[in-house]
């Protein structure tokens, strides 16, 4: 009973989750709780397990151990029910290039069972907001990477999900669109929508996230607000970049640069 109540309080609850690919440990016994309406940033070097963690929350990857609960649903037991409530932006997404932007969004609306009027309203609003007007009827094959990213972001947001899983969501976006997305995520958070995003841009994480999780070699090294991370790293007044480099043990880059300059 107690466990169930705790699960309901959280949008996402990972308990003892790990995942191995052959000899490589992608994620090692992670415990993570994300509250409703919270924005949590997943930081870590390449191959630290961020994308695998996101995929396990979405149910795309089955964990070897532990359990994943999303909005009170066990992902293993009802993967479809979980997916209905999630908006997902993968890293470097490939979308159906033979469709137009509009057709892809219309397709997304149908996949999530949106009513035609609601679908039309949401598509038109997002297309206008993210400056896709005039190109929405063109085939996606002719879009730039940034335009494709915008289409994927719209497809993740248009069905009003309760949880957003975003893997490098702002990559390729122009400054105006990036600002719109950032403000939108904050606004959605105030309405109770939870966001878990992975990013390599530490300034974005520092500016947007309520809490930051730093991952390294599949382990969760630290989790907390900026202040909590500073305390853990014993680096008061430091920027996230310095804390991140210290915690992940990748701080001293000077010898590398010097070697390259020889």
């Amino acid at each position: 009973m107690e466990l169930e109540a705790s699960v309901h309080l959280h949008a996402v609850k990972l308990m003892g989750v790990s995942k191995r690919y052959g000899n490589v440990t992608a994620v090692e016994y992670i415990d993570l709780e994300v509250g409703k309406g919270e924005i949590v940033g997943l930081l870590g070097p390449n191959g630290s397990g961020k994308s695998t963690t996101i995929k396990m929350i979405l149910g795309l990857v089955k964990p070897d151990t532990g359990s994943v609960n999303v909005l009170g649903i066990n992902v293993k037991e009802d993967p479809i029910g979980v997916k209905r409530k999630i908006g997902y932006v993968p890293e470097s997404p490939r979308i159906y290039e033979f469709l137009t932007g509009l057709e892809f969004l219309d397709f997304t609306g149908d996949v999530y069972g949106m009513a035609p009027d609601e679908k039309k309203k949401r598509i038109e609003e997002f297309v206008k907001a993210l400056d896709l007007e005039g190109r929405e009827g063109d085939m996606i094959s002719s879009y730039s990477e940034g335009m494709k990213q915008k289409v994927v972001i719209i497809s993740a947001l248009m069905h009003k999900p309760q949880l957003l899983l975003l893997d490098e969501p702002l990559s390729g976006l122009d400054p105006k669109s990036a600002r719109i997305v950032k403000d939108l995520l904050r606004e959605l958070a105030s309405q109770g929508v939870t966001t878990i995003m992975s990013t390599h841009v530490l300034e974005i994480a520092q500016a947007m996230c309520d809490r930051i999780a730093i991952m390294y070699n599949g382990r969760l090294l630290a989790l907390g607000t900026m202040q909590e991370l500073r305390e853990k790293a014993m680096m008061p007044e430091s920027r996230l970049e310095d804390i991140f480099l210290k915690l992940t043990g990748t701080g001293d880059v000077k010898p590398i640069v010097e070697a390259l300059m020889k």
């Binding site: 137009t100 057709e103 219309d106 609306g109 929405e136 009827g137 063109d138 085939m139 094959s141 879009y143």
Partner: peptide
């Protein structure tokens, strides 16, 4: 190659 424009104007969802 230039992009192919499939539709222009108001978007109407089809049943």
């Amino acid at each position: 190659a230039p992009s192919i424009t499939i539709s222009r104007g108001t978007y109407t969802p089809k049943t």
